[in-house]
Simulated scan of single mutants.
Amino acid sequence: PEAKQSSPVEATQAKPLNVVGGVLLHEGQALFMFQGTDRGAQGYANAVNTWVELVAKKRPGMTSTVVVTPTSSHFYLPPAARAKTTSEPKNLAAMRAALLPEVRFADVVTEMEGHQDEALFFKSDHHWTGLGAYYAYRAWARANGVTPLELSAFSKRSVPGVAGSFWSLTQAPELRNADKESYYYVPTTVTFDGTQYAGPQQKTPMPQPFFAEKSRGYIVFLGGDIPLLVSNTSAGTGRTALVVKNSYGNAFAPYLLPHFDRVVVLDYRYVSRNIQDIVDTFGVTDLVFVNATITANSGAHQERMRQVARGSSTAWLTEAEKRRLKQQEDAAGKTQASAAVSDKAQ
């Protein structure tokens, strides 16, 4: 009898998964192997609820909206890998169920479905693209009864891409040049500026555009992870949004510019200025929480969010500060080593 030949589909399914550091390398793209739990989802909801209790409920009329996106894995994981991960939509459903009734929930998954053939996420990085963030903006708009602008209301531009975080983790050669460009969409219906607040108390204004058009890759959005960034616009709506985010919020925040007179972007990891002061100083009327499932399920991120809501001034070190301290430590180590050699020589 003739030997049975494997079909191409069976051969693909039988091929062992190439997982490096919790990341699956598949067809030229890196995909995170999501392991979130209901408990993790409920922890994020608890962090948001803390903000509602301590910030929103003190100010009548303030709205709160959660915008949490799935990772690229939800859309692109091969069937053989799904049994080794947990469901992101189920995780988001558990999160939604644990939020206070007044919190609005943006259904990002539903808005992204059907657009999988578009570049929603970078292939070599864990972030979404400017286009992926656009669909999340549409989900935010629907959750708030707002008519979202079409992409034609934005000017599509690009900067050179970079090899992202997944490439740094895996060093997979197929990821090295997987993201050749980073596209971003600039609102054309409003004028807007940008100011970051720096200094020891994060109260010293410094110019900082919402689009760092001389940069590369994901840094084009807001210029990176700035603790406190504000844009005043010509929208004329009488409202101010406070975007409480980690890096996933960088690509999302610019889409709010046409809908608010002021958009305040707060990176909960690095902000140290008192939250009540920020809300009162800038006249915040709407809270928008932006995250991805991978960090929303992190206990460390959840606790940091609660700390900021409670008024903690202790922030995480920024990556730039970590590099500066590392350079100082390395320089000090070299100085000590040189001194030791000199002592021995004498």
Rank of each mutant, 00 (worst) to 15 (best):
T191Y: 13
R96C: 09
A178R: 13
T63G: 07
Q201P: 06
R96Y: 12
P187W: 06
D179P: 09
T37N: 08
A153K: 15
V109H: 03
Q196A: 15
V290K: 01
M95T: 14
A45D: 06
R324E: 14
L31Y: 04
V341Y: 11
A309M: 04
E27H: 10
P78I: 04
M62V: 12
A251C: 08
Q196H: 09
D261H: 10
T285L: 03
A198C: 09
L120C: 03
S155C: 12
L242K: 00
K322V: 08
Q29T: 15
R157A: 07
Q327V: 10
E2W: 07
Q346N: 13
L222T: 08
A253V: 04
L25D: 05
R304L: 09
S247W: 02
F211R: 02
N297D: 15
L100G: 12
D343V: 04
T285K: 01
F289H: 01
G217E: 03
T37Q: 09
A198I: 13
T191A: 15
G22V: 15
V66A: 04
G223T: 03
K322Q: 15
T129Q: 03
L256T: 00
M112E: 06
A172S: 14
S64M: 10
M305T: 11
A30T: 02
V230W: 03
E319R: 11
P173G: 14
K90N: 07
V52Q: 05
V67Y: 01
G236F: 10
S182C: 11
G21F: 09
P8R: 12
K156V: 05
I294G: 02
G161M: 12
D193L: 06
V271I: 10
V263C: 12
L31G: 02
I278L: 03
T50W: 03
L24Y: 06
L222P: 00
T295C: 08
R104P: 08
V23R: 06
A80Y: 08
D225R: 02
S124G: 13
V109P: 03
T69K: 01
P160S: 14
A80R: 14
G43W: 03
H127R: 09
P207W: 03
F252R: 00
W167F: 13
S342L: 15
R96I: 11
E113T: 07
E319I: 10
A300M: 08
T293A: 04
D280W: 01
N232K: 12
A292W: 00
V20W: 04
Q29P: 06
K90C: 07
S165M: 15
R306W: 09
R142L: 11
N18A: 06
A30W: 00
P89V: 07
L242Q: 01
T285E: 02
G224T: 14
G132W: 01
A235W: 05
A106T: 07
E319S: 15
G114Y: 12
F121A: 05
K344I: 13
V265Q: 05
D286L: 02
D330G: 06
S215P: 05
L325R: 11
N232Y: 15
G28L: 08
A153D: 09
K245I: 00
S87N: 09
P79N: 13
F32E: 10
Y134P: 09
A345W: 02
L77K: 04
D179I: 11
D286A: 01
S158H: 10
S124P: 15
D179L: 07
V220N: 01
V244G: 00
P209K: 01
Y185A: 14
Q116A: 08
P205L: 04
F32K: 06
T233G: 10
R269N: 07
P16I: 10
Y137Q: 08
